[in-house]
Every structure is written in structure tokens, then in C-alpha cells.
């Protein structure tokens, strides 16, 4: 070993202290607050009461269920679209595909709040204009209906995340040894066969990463939700992060919101672990 143990410690310690102070300690304090009736300024211990109430709170359960639905839809769509993008930009290596890479990735460079407002304009004003011009009634009032409001957030999020996921797939697609593909071509495999039997199995690690990223991100979705619909119409598109924020900073029931946050944390951890375990197994 080149570095001795105490030197090793000296390198790790600064980062460790910051992680402890900024992440671990607040997290532990947070767990404590989930057992209190904190309103942000005063708090007293009330045991499991927050959790008991939480599991009977229809609004919380509704927003949680909405988040689950959203995550499933978003994860599937983002990975499909991202993979499709990746295949498009890796088929040829010319100027068009290079500029397409930039175009597909661009939405990811814009912040969530801004994206939300841009799409709000599209869904309300642009859709409305198209609807009146061509007499297409289904394009009217997208954000004032629970179903289309939900799909509005899905579309926005897919549009934003696909480019990023595309990058991951692109790097893995490029890493596939060319000789395996050439061998398949020599054997007379069609492009679809090459994709399903040669490329796809070698993309397994990319799926692990992409699924993990999209899943965690869609569970935590907040700013797109805020800027696009702000939970409306009538709280029907309020996801669990927004529920937590509103309970904490609008209702000032911070202990209760903290309890909801803990539940969200447990769920995200659990789902991520299960997903990682399954994907790893398949990779192996």
C-alpha cells in the first residue's frame, strides 16, 4: 500500500465531516422530528401519531398512488424514448446525427422550473390556438383536467430526461465490440435480430443505471410539478414531494410532513434496492 492508514484518513476526513454535518446529522434530526408535532418553531414529542394519521390521510395516499403511477409510466417511456434516441444517433456518424445528439440533450440543460413554464405556455396557449384553428377539441384545457394534466407532466418529464438517458445508452452502445456485430452480419442476421440478440444483452448494465436514475428522479419529482400544474386542477396532480412541501411550508405541520418524507425515503430506498438486485442478477 502506497499510503498509510493515517494518511488515508486525512484525505477522507474533510469530506466525511461535511457529509456527516450536511447529510447524516440533518437526516437523523429529521427522523426525530417525524415523531413530533413541530410547526417549524416549536416541537414536542408525540410518538407514532404522525404515521398513524398519515396512513388514514386520503390526500396523502392519493398523492402517493399518483406518484407510483407516474413513476411507472415515466420510467418505461423515458427508457424507450432514450434508447430510441440512442439508436438513431449511433446508426451513422455524420453531421445530422451529431446535431441530433445536441438537440436531444438540450432539454436537460434547462432547469425544471423553466421547463415547466415553457410547457405551461405550450399546453395552455399553443394547444388552445391549434385547437381553435383546426377544431380539435381534445387539445383544449389540458392543464385543467386531471387526466391530461397527469399526461402533461409525463410528457414534460420524458422530454427532459430522455436526452440524458440517451447519453448513457450511447456510451454503452459505442462500447459494444464491433466484431460481435460484424460476426452477426456475416452470419446473415437482420438489423432487428442484431438489436435484440447482440446489442440488447450487452446493454444490461446501461439498463441498471438508467432505470435507477429515472426511478429515483420520478419519485422525487417536484419543480416540474410545481411550475406546470402546481398540483392543479384541484390537487389532482399533486405528487408526494409537493404534498410534503405544502404540508411543511404552507400548513406549517412540519413534523407531519417530515413523517411523510420518511415514508417517501423508505419507499425510494426499497424500490431502488429491489430494482438494483434484479438488474444485477440479470447482468451477472
Amino acid at each position: 500500500m502506497l499510503i498509510k492508514k493515517h494518511q488515508y484518513l486525512a484525505f477522507v476526513l474533510p469530506a466525511l465531516i461535511f457529509i456527516l454535518l450536511i447529510i447524516v446529522v440533518p437526516f437523523l434530526i429529521g427522523i426525530y422530528y417525524s415523531f413530533t408535532d413541530s410547526n417549524g418553531l416549536r416541537a414536542s414529542f408525540i410518538g407514532w401519531k404522525n404515521f398513524e394519521v398519515l396512513f388514514r390521510d386520503a390526500t396523502f395516499l392519493q398523492s402517493f398512488w399518483l406518484t407510483v403511477k407516474f413513476s411507472v409510466v415515466a420510467v418505461v417511456l423515458i427508457n424507450l424514448v432514450g434508447l430510441a434516441f440512442a439508436l438513431i444517433v449511433t446508426t451513422h456518424n455524420n453531421r445530422l446525427t451529431k446535431s441530433l445528439r445536441t438537440i436531444f440533450f438540450m432539454p436537460n440543460l434547462i432547469g425544471g422550473i423553466l421547463l415547466g413554464f415553457i410547457w405551461q405556455f405550450i399546453f395552455t396557449s399553443a394547444f388552445q390556438a391549434v385547437a381553435t384553428a383546426f377544431d380539435l377539441n381534445f387539445l383544449k384545457g389540458w392543464l385543467s383536467d386531471p387526466t391530461t394534466g397527469f399526461w402533461g407532466i409525463v410528457i414534460l418529464f420524458v422530454w427532459q430526461m430522455s436526452g440524458y438517458i440517451m447519453l448513457i445508452y450511447v456510451s454503452f452502445l459505442n462500447a459494444i465490440p464491433q466484431n460481435t456485430i460484424q460476426a452477426a452480419i456475416l452470419d446473415g442476421a437482420k438489423p432487428t435480430q442484431i438489436f435484440f440478440y447482440v446489442k440488447l444483452p450487452q446493454l444490461a448494465p446501461a439498463f441498471t443505471i438508467s432505470l435507477f436514475l429515472t426511478l429515483a428522479n420520478s419519485f422525487k419529482l417536484y419543480e416540474q410539478n410545481l411550475a406546470l400544474t402546481n398540483g392543479g386542477p384541484y390537487r389532482s396532480t399533486e405528487m408526494v414531494s409537493m404534498y410534503i412541501y405544502n404540508t411543511a411550508f404552507v400548513n406549517f405541520q412540519q413534523g407531519y410532513a417530515q413523517a411523510a418524507g420518511i415514508i417517501l425515503f423508505l419507499c425510494v430506498t426499497l424500490v431502488s434496492f429491489i430494482q438494483l438486485a434484479i438488474s444485477r442478477k440479470q447482468e451477472g
Binding site: 390526500t59 392543479g232 386542477p233 384541484y234 390537487r235 405544502n246 404540508t247 404552507v250 400548513n251 406549517f252 405541520q253
Partner: peptide, 15 residues
């Protein structure tokens, strides 16, 4: 009450 406007009265009236 805090939150009543945008979490109860508002949404129910919108419904």
C-alpha cells in the same frame, strides 16, 4: 387556518 385556502377550500371549489 394555514393551508386551508389552497389545500381545501380552493380545490373543492374548483371541483
Amino acid at each position: 387556518p394555514n393551508g386551508f385556502t389552497n389545500q381545501a377550500l380552493g380545490p373543492y371549489m374548483q371541483r
